[in-house]
Design a protein around this nucleic acid. Structure first.
Length: 608
RNA sequence: GGUUCCGUAGCUCAGUUGGAUAGAGCAACAGCCUUCUAAGCUGUGGGUCGCGCGUUCGAAUCGCGCCGGAAUCACCA
């Protein structure tokens, strides 16, 4: 079924031909929502068509308006203001639309194929998209920046699947490298055998403490060396602890059993901690890659490339790629001691994924600080001649900053993910107690609702912002529960649910359809138009990988609904057709709220 | 210094395939609960859309040049 905008677009193309004998493409037809201050629902901007009509804006609009009204009963009438043709759509069109979507509980959401089925993509539809997100290092706990990453990644996956794509959610755990060795080193030196069990600390936090401790010690050694006459650079290269960490990495890569054992143990602690945080955030993955399992593949690719003279070697043995022809610099791929760097394993992981799943697109949800890295990765894979190098897309998002500037995990200046989640839920509890609306519910129910509200506020706060933009988070000002917030949206939903509970008490049953002969008031019409727009919003969000479009659309919808709710009674409406309309309209609005927020990973409580 | 991204109300953000008089929320102030949940609704004040030039019938939106901020250009990840 075509939506009215598509019908009008097609018809205007036809009109241009029959009126002026010239063809034009659908792309030249500019339709927009009529601004609130003018009468109408859909507006055609005629200026771009003047070249074809060779008439005045008013005359062109008149010609087209007449043509449209003659050919489409959906268009009631029109008016012309300057070069704008404002069309009023029949209420009947929206009522029919409402009747059509009532049976569709998952309105707007297409059922994408099961992601659990991890077979390689075949040649037939649907398109398979692999999305990497989260990608933590195992040397420290997750912070607010990771929260943004996880929420974005998870939401983008939902949105893509809602447009019928086959989506594979993947995580690349950075479980190896010099940073892990840093934590291991300090734990060996100062840990006295401390474990999550003996200390009562969450595993990722425990390991993180030793990482911070390493950095402290490293900095103090660097300062000492500088005081002893070293240059900054030499001091940083020669501080004893960093040399030890490097030695440990060499042992790790050589397969030293003692080092490997410690490494496994400490990583396990971290994974348990991460899994708890993931569970609280409500995110999950279909396939987890570990760098420790992909780096050798990457190393092999580098050596192959070296053999084929795509890369070259310095006298000290390090391997490089020359990206000067691409306007970049030379880039190291293997260190002089033979150990691999960050990009090495990303090459290996990319190839493994192609072999295993053959996705049509590979999306990396990674912060904008790595823009250069992904540019380099694409070019290298290109140089190596992989046709799928084209399918890589870096979904780059902005940093979360504190009022003082960016977070520094090396110095422990971070907003910890677990802490923040805990605070959000606590604030929800405080507020609920204050408002007293949950009195009479069981403790477990109250707790569940507060979790939904606290997490909803956090998720909405993060996801409503355009991903490309940096955002500031002020820990001293708690995240709002009023205004443009997740709570406002949840609140609107619970109001609707409450109406239906009340309806049941009053013995008012939910109708299956609405009469097509009702005159809509302005609020009802606005709401139906927004509901009508929902599928297009999802398509847009999927195309641009942008969950904030969903968030902002839903805000607009609930704002409109609250005005409607305030201005009109639903259950006390005497006219039965009108009452039915309002009931069904409310039902569909609740559904859109639930489905759209579901795309953001935000749950809806039944009451709050 | 090179490259990339960002700059809209006091604050946080919408609006950008070029369209009509640039919108919300927070904060401030003034109203609305014997009514389907006031986590709501209504109103008031608040703007050289960083600056300049250009393209255009029309620019917050496109181009160029500045200014301000961020990221990156590591044998870190």
């Amino acid at each position: 079924m075509q939506q009215i905008e598509e019908i009008i677009t097609g018809s205007v193309v036809g009109a241009m031909h029959s009126l002026y004998g010239r063809t034009c493409s659908p792309e030249q037809i500019q339709l927009q929502k009529t601004r609130r201050e003018f009468e109408g629902d859909v507006t055609l901007v005629v200026f771009p068509l003047l070249k074809i009509s060779r008439k005045s804006p008013e005359q062109t609009a008149l010609d087209i308006g007449e043509h449209l009204v003659r050919n489409h009963t959906e268009i009631k009438h029109y008016n012309i203001i300057k070069g704008f043709l404002n069309m009023v759509i029949q209420d009947n069109y929206y009522l029919n639309y409402l009747n059509r979507i009532i049976p569709d509980a998952s309105y707007g959401i297409q059922a994408g194929p099961d992601t659990g089925n991890l077979s390689p993509a075949g040649n037939q539809q649907p398109e398979t998209i692999m999305v990497e997100y989260s990608s933590p290092n195992t040397n420290k706990p997750l912070h607010l920046g990771h929260i943004r990453n996880n929420l974005l990644g998870y939401s983008v996956c939902n949105i893509l699947r809602a447009t019928g794509k086959r989506v594979i959610k993947t995580n690349l755990v950075n479980d190896r490298g010099i940073h892990i060795c840093k934590s291991m080193l300090t734990w060996l030196r100062y840990g006295k055998g401390e474990t999550p069990e003996t200390s009562g600390k969450k595993g990722d936090h425990l390991v993180g403490e030793y990482y911070v401790r390493f950095e402290q010690e490293y900095r103090s050694q660097v300062s000492e060396l500088i005081a002893g006459g070293y240059s900054q650079e030499d001091a940083e290269k020669n501080a004893p602890v960093i040399l030890e960490a490097q030695e440990m990495l060499r042992k790790w890569e050589a397969g030293d059993p003692e080092i490997l054992n410690l490494w496994k143990t400490m990583n396990e602690w971290v994974y348990e901690g991460f899994n708890e945080t993931y569970r609280k955030l409500g995110v999950d993955f279909d396939k987890i890659y570990y760098e420790s399992e992909t780096w050798l593949q990457g190393k092999k690719m580098v050596l192959d490339g070296l053999g084929k003279k795509q890369f070259f070697q310095h006298p000290d043995g390090s391997v490089w790629v020359d990206l000067r022809p691409e306007g970049l610099d030379e880039k190291v791929l293997l260190r002089s001691d033979g150990t691999s760097v960050y990009i090495t394993q990303d090459m290996g992981t990319a190839q493994l994924r192609q072999e295993q799943y053959n996705p049509d697109k590979m999306i990396y949800v990674v912060g904008n600080e790595q823009n250069y890295h992904f540019k380099v990765l694409s070019i290298i894979l290109h140089k190596l001649g992989f046709p799928w190098a084209e399918s890589l897309h870096h979904l780059s998002y902005g940093m979360v900053e504190l009022p003082e500037g960016r977070m520094k995990s090396r110095e422990g200046v971070v907003v910890d993910a677990d802490d923040l989640i805990g605070e959000m839920i606590q604030t929800a509890r405080d507020m609920s107690r204050e408002l007293g609306k949950l009195d009479g519910l069981k403790e477990s129910e109250k707790e569940n609702i507060c979790k939904i509200i606290g997490m909803g506020a956090l998720k909405y706060y993060i996801l409503k912002v355009d991903p490309v933009k940096n955002m500031t988070f002020n820990p001293r000002e708690s995240i709002d529960f009023d205004g443009n917030t997740g709570s406002f949206i949840q609140y609107t939903y619970t109001r609707i649910r409450s109406v239906f509970r009340k309806a049941e008490e009053l013995g008012i049953s939910k109708p299956g359809f609405v009469s097509g002969q009702i005159a809509l008031n302005q609020k009802e019409k606005n709401l139906l138009q927004l509901v009508h727009e929902f599928p297009a919003v999802i398509a847009d969000a999927a195309q641009t990988y942008n969950p904030s479009l969903i968030a902002n659309f839903t805000y607009e919808l609930v704002k409109e609904y609250n005005q409607f709710y305030h201005d009109f009674s639903i259950l006390k409406e005497k006219n039965k057709d009108k009452r039915n309309l309002r009931l069904l309209l409310s039902e569909v609005v609740a559904r859109v709220i639930r489905n759209s927020m579901g795309l953001l990973g935000i749950e809806m409580p039944e009451r709050m």
